[in-house]
């Protein structure tokens, strides 16, 4: 092989040259350094070839999360121990089998006797926090995660997160700021959708009366999956839409307005008056009563941050020429 005739491309095609650049093996380094001092005019070509080799990399990379890593590793260690135990010892295994069967039987019998007694006492207590219409609550979970519940929603979670995952159940809408704990994935179950995260913030809207459940990610990564395991990974600005009907999951981008409720911003966007009223009913937890003969044609738009209902009603009454009266939680609309 005559290296003197080598051009950049030839160096690159030479497997020994390439593995020298990559492995920096001392013996090879010595060879190339010696060769270069004998052929100094080749130094430029060599440098260029080296530069290119050192610059090649995978464009997309990924790795196991810590949880995934330990899950697989634990399984392997168990399999390894099982394989290591003397497999020829059939009697021992038979004995274990019988012992296990007896144990099961005893457990079954005890379980049968105890069905009359509250079994929950043994389990970790579940806590349920819910909000009425017109009400929002901020909840701090045992792991330090913070959930802001929107109106008419509820969150169910264990008193302590002692299982392998931090699993909670949401009905309605909530903004989650999940404390990071890589060893314990945080999973939210809502309808048929499972939202799994390690530590991030996002909005999850799962009102039972809506056809779809949406997950809008603010920071971090969120994995959502349906009951058959079909999943999507969402990054910031991504929104996952789950259809209750088809169980399909769609990925798109969300409009910032989705998160407005979190900052107490009420957005009414060019809505017909009856819809505006039902939106206000939910937002403020009130009830509207429309007098006969009131003309409810026309639409209304507005954006309000932490404003009173009165202020909004004032706006509507001037633009739509209607009157209102407030009696505690009852709003009467008349001509």
């Amino acid at each position: 092989m005559d290296y003197k005739e080598y051009k950049v491309q030839d160096f690159l095609g030479d497997e020994y040259f390439v593995s020298w650049v990559i492995d920096e093996d001392p013996a090879a380094t010595q060879f190339w350094e010696k060769w270069l001092s004998a052929n100094p005019e080749k130094r430029l070509e060599v440098e260029r070839a080296k530069e290119l080799i050192k610059s090649v990399n995978y464009k997309y990379t990924d790795k196991l999360t810590d949880t995934e890593y330990s899950q697989i590793f634990e399984r392997l260690l168990r399999a390894d121990e099982a394989a290591a135990s003397p497999s020829g010892n059939r009697y021992k295994r038979l004995a274990y089998g019988i012992a296990a069967a007896i144990a099961l039987l005893i457990v079954a019998l005890i379980g049968y006797q105890e069905t009359y007694e509250p079994v929950e006492e043994l389990a970790i207590q579940q806590v349920e926090v819910s909000t009425e219409l017109g009400q929002r609550k901020t909840i701090k979970l045992p792991d330090g995660s913070i959930v802001k519940l929107n109106i008419g929603s509820s969150l169910e979670f264990p008193e302590r997160f002692e299982m392998a995952t931090r699993t909670v159940k949401l009905t309605g809408e909530g903004y989650f700021d999940v404390a990071e704990d890589k060893s314990k994935p945080f999973i939210i179950q809502s309808g048929g959708l499972f939202t799994e995260v390690l530590g991030t913030s996002f909005n999850l809207c799962a009102y039972p009366e809506l056809d779809s459940i949406t997950v809008s990610v603010v920071t971090g990564r969120v994995k959502i999956s349906n009951e058959s395991g079909v999943h999507q990974v969402l990054s910031p600005a991504d929104m996952g839409i789950y259809s209750r009907q088809t169980q399909s999951i769609l990925k798109t981008k969300y409009d910032e307005d989705i998160l407005a409720w979190y900052s107490g911003i009420l957005i009414i966007e060019n809505k017909p008056l009856p819809e505006v009223f039902s939106q206000l009913e939910r937002w403020y937890g009130v009830e509207f009563e429309i007098a006969d003969g009131v003309n409810l044609e026309g639409t209304y738009s507005g954006r309000y941050q932490n404003k009173s209902l009165e202020l909004i009603l004032e706006g509507i009454s001037t633009t739509s020429h209607i009157n209102y009266s407030i009696d505690n939680k009852k709003i009467r609309i008349y001509e």
Binding site: E47, E51, S55, Y58, K59
Partner: peptide, 28 residues
């Protein structure tokens, strides 16, 4: 289509370095 996609990015500036950002892109 995205399998084994390559990127060219020099971590170390070489003496007599030839690979500017433009060229890295072209090669990749």
């Amino acid at each position: 289509n995205e399998s084994f996609m390559v990127t060219i990015s020099s971590e170390v500036k070489m003496i007599n370095g030839q690979l500017d950002a433009e060229k890295q892109h072209l090669i990749a």
